[in-house]
Design a binder for these strands. Structure first.
Lengths: 163, 163
DNA sequence: TATTGTTATACTCTATAACTATA
DNA sequence: TATAGTTATAGAGTATAACAATA
């Protein structure tokens, strides 16, 4: 028996979170639904890749370095929407764990080129397998036939700050 | 002329973030698109309500207290997906700003009932006006006709952790 | 002058453990 | 025993300012 029902005797339906939140208007807001969905999906991501101890941000960095080895820190951080100052410790950690490394960039002594280590490549292959199951869960929830449209809507929202 | 094009001369298209990220696979991932969209939308929210200095989490608390005055801290925090321990300082701040207050709950000397102050009610009305424009921008980007389905998809994703 | 890498700093959000008082 | 409120703490993520080295 929930304590909620005991206290709010005017409305026995208010015994769970869902019933409560429906009175607020929040459920009809895109921004609120986005935040709740993202929080849940990030948790599922972390759980899915728990054995590798990799978080979404780290996965993003590894992904872009795998796809385009040799990029510089501002190129990677900017593409991922990360401040270049915050990228430093983020990449330090990947380097500490021997997943990726910095190498002097040819032609510009200021910058580093970023690469996966051999170990990082092996781990990344394993990450992608585990990640595929996570992504499949998300796809099933969104609807396979509706995924492309859903992604397009999210990308449109992501551009809200531009220009 | 972007520095990216100079360094990655194999592919002149890699001069902006969007072109770079498209090689990673990340663009096809629901989780990644969700995180980028949420970050942008939260920024737009904060900007939209900047004159009131209200953040999404605070807005959520004020919304549910407005809709259901007299709820207790665990009822509100649980409905919003916030740890009860984290809720304390969050509500302290709303109380400090005279937007909401705790009152002794009838029948249980352990708990507080939460309410908006008169000032909080006035501010909340103003917040809702500013928020409506923010939400309208989001709706336009998602597509008015597609909003309900989009919300349903987000709610489905938000339940991914349940049972 | 502008950019790269970096350090420092701070704030938000989230997560866990533990304590107290009440139930 | 369980719950409400609280404190403490830690880890992510994000944001800004500043500096040295290099362009």
């Amino acid at each position: 028996m929930g304590a909620a029902g005991d206290i709010l005797e005017q409305d026995p339906d208010v015994s769970d979170d869902e019933a409560l939140i429906q009175f607020t208007g929040l459920t009809g807001y895109i921004g609120y639904a986005l935040r709740r969905a993202t929080a849940a999906v990030v948790q599922d991501f972390v759980r899915s890749l728990a054995e590798f101890d990799i978080r979404p941000t780290q996965f993003g960095v590894l992904s872009i370095i795998q796809a385009r080895p040799g990029l510089t820190q501002p190129q990677v951080s900017s593409a991922l929407g990360i401040q270049r100052s915050n990228f430093v410790t983020l990449f330090d950690e990947l380097e500490r764990r021997s997943l990726a490394y910095r190498a002097p960039a040819a032609g510009d002594r200021r910058s580093y080129a970023l690469y996966l280590t051999d170990h990082g490549k092996v781990v990344m292959d394993q990450l992608l397998i585990a990640h595929r199951q996570h992504e499949q869960r998300l796809t099933d929830l969104v609807g396979t036939a509706d995924k492309d449209k859903f992604l397009a809507q999210l990308k449109a929202l992501a551009r809200i700050g531009e220009a």
